[in-house]
Design a protein around this nucleic acid. Sequence first.
DNA 1: TCACTGTTGTTAGAAGTTCTAACACAAGTT
DNA 2: AACTTGTGTTAGAACTTCTAACAACAGTGA
Lengths: 253, 253
Amino acid sequence: MVNVRRERFREETKVEAKRIALEQLAEQGIAGISVNAIAKRMGVTGPALYRYFKGRDDLLNDLVRDAWHDLADAVEAAVSASEGADPPDRVRAFAAGFRSWAIAQPHRYLLLLGTPLPGYQAPEDTIMAAHRTMSAFLAVLPTGALAAGAPPAGAQSTGALATGEPPREDATAGLDAQLVAWAGSRGEGTVPPAVLLAGLRGFTRLHGVLSLEVAGQFGPMGIDPALLYRAEVESLILGDSDVRGSTSVSGPG
Amino acid sequence: MVNVRRERFREETKVEAKRIALEQLAEQGIAGISVNAIAKRMGVTGPALYRYFKGRDDLLNDLVRDAWHDLADAVEAAVSASEGADPPDRVRAFAAGFRSWAIAQPHRYLLLLGTPLPGYQAPEDTIMAAHRTMSAFLAVLPTGALAAGAPPAGAQSTGALATGEPPREDATAGLDAQLVAWAGSRGEGTVPPAVLLAGLRGFTRLHGVLSLEVAGQFGPMGIDPALLYRAEVESLILGDSDVRGSTSVSGPG
DNA sequence: TCACTGTTGTTAGAAGTTCTAACACAAGTT
DNA sequence: AACTTGTGTTAGAACTTCTAACAACAGTGA
């Protein structure tokens, strides 16, 4: 079985090609990813790379897949490292991990959550990887408190997580049903809809700041996105939560 | 002076070219905008269009400029139409106008606020147009209530806008200073930092939902982004505002 | 050792892109 | 009528993606 040797070389070649592709992505954006240029940088002629990737879209598929998994690994690591901490601190840990990953490689964040490619449809397994990121978030939201009405241990240290609330009034029924269906379709049926909603809304808020930051929209405004991000994170944690209320941060820097 | 006749024809040609470019943008994304293809659709050879646009980037510049102005027109119209209404309803009017514009032409929204082009830097006047959109938002936030501590007329009808709050604790100093500097640099020095912060945070939250919606991220999840958007809008208005609290909507549909 | 098979590389080429250069023509001005 | 200006054309350079045909190599079986 020499196939395994060959397979290894083949894998290494693909890894190197993807590494160079990421450099191109960072320098010139998605449109700047050129198979020929990658080949040239590898000291090989253009068509040779087509032995490894069916085409440019196939290469992009791999990049997207890798990025989703990488992001999920990052936030899962952050969440794991915060095991045993207060729920507020665990939310902070997730948010910090999420942001760190994003700003460390803005182009990859935008590859996942920015402008979608024309006719590109993410394959099934990348969608699962995306779910992993959301699951890591849901994991640090205090489900117990919600279900039982009792705050989880330590929740009172910095401020109660705003998930213990009286029943919501109306109109949420549709959304709740959708959330339950969504969670059910991925084997997470035990999470109550209120937590799913908290996770989804929290995610969109973090993304709102992050996506503008990685797109460089705050640069010309002279505003530090880190402060804005922290304000949003704290508003997820504290019950205060209007858009202009306390942006004070008593948590770790 | 026949120059005016020529100038008119020239302008019409540019308008038509941009119209076709928007079609291409919608169909194939930014990368799909091809000067040659535009020319072909206009019944003209490729290089002819280079009399009108120095290059593809020049054409894109025009598209971005137009889009910013168009968006500003839309939200300003929505805000104007709500004149005299409750502040909460005016916020709803802005949010609805913002979303309508975005989902009616997702590609243009992404052109402005999605993944930025490689080396593209928006010219000065487009930045001014972007400010117009934010100004329309700030205009419906109840500045008076904040400054005086008294709710503006009608604010109590649906729920107080969450801008009347005790002084914030700490750490906001840096952000406040940046906000003031930002507002000052564009002749809006009279708006208090708390309102600026409310506007900025509100904008990022709306954008958080909208950007994911126009990118089609909610599609595979089976979740209706309109409901999520309304939830965020109402949380801007009501003081409740944690991420999982009331998503009930008492405002107009 | 020899031939066979599969993988990987090469060059050649088609079809497309952006963009420049040189030329042709029409309209308005002097 | 001659001249200037704006606009269109074709030709071509330098890219791109991607296919096709061919060459060279590895490891396997006889």
